[in-house]
Amino acid sequence: MSNNGETGSATVLEVNNLKKYYPSVKAVDDISFEVNAGEIVSILGPNGAGKTTTIEIIEGLRTKDEGEISYFGRFKEVNNEVKNRVGVCFQENSFFEDLTVSETIRLYKSLYEKSLDTKELIEIFELEEKVKTRIRHLSGGQKQRLAVALAFVNDPDLVFLDEPTVGLDPHARRNLWEIILKFKSQGKGIVLTTHYMDEAQQLSDKVYIMDHGNIITAGSPQELINSSGLESVIEFPEESSALFEDVIIAGEYAYLHTRDTVSAIRKLLESNVTNFVVRQPTLEDVFLKLTGKKID
């Protein structure tokens, strides 16, 4: 699936020198980025990197200390028009558990000036069979699909999706990717935060990797991979990590980034390590190299 097609040119979100400091931590430390119409921008980072704080400031849920945010090239704050043109899917979504799917969509529609057709939205997110089911009786995946549907209920121009595919099976994830790409093709600017690196790689036009409140690198997924200097990645059990000096350990596995693949494989085989994988570098490897952490 390729996502690097044409993107719109209008900037729907521009963030400049955004700062949010807490007494003990610089949650967001002077970051800048922009999102254009018809573009998917992913913000990646380990836990505590400042992603959520950044997104919540932009959404108007938190105040900022410094910096400037421009919405749709016109608005400097979250006013009623901005709210009407922004859609949000939280990482943890909550609903009136005793309303049905249909009632919930109608409720959220009623809170905006414009909205998509309820039936159309239900069809897009494949919730037809659950229209009259109360939220508390939905599965985790169905709830998640509804949460994403609600992010698009007001036909927004800018959408924030925080872990939109968490809890979905692989097939459902792929379906949701298709839906997100479809909305992107309609010119909506989408900001995605995800733990799934393959998701970010497949969907994103631009990726911003954050750590300690800073954006440490940015670019398209392929640009980030190309500029990382990584040629091959060898993945093998962590207990054999002492064989090499420059390995990154994440969980039960060690990751070796090397240009001399043949020598590394020979060394593993000589040590009777046979359960290893050699592959091309991915966005996940870039992330691992830059942050030293694997996203859990």
Binding site: L61, N80, K83, V88, F90, N93, S94, F95, Y108
Partner: peptide, 13 residues
């Protein structure tokens, strides 16, 4: 606690 008010904050209610 469940975050419904956060959701309402994003709307014009």
């Amino acid at each position: 606690q469940y975050g419904l008010f956060r959701r309402f904050m994003l709307t014009n209610v």
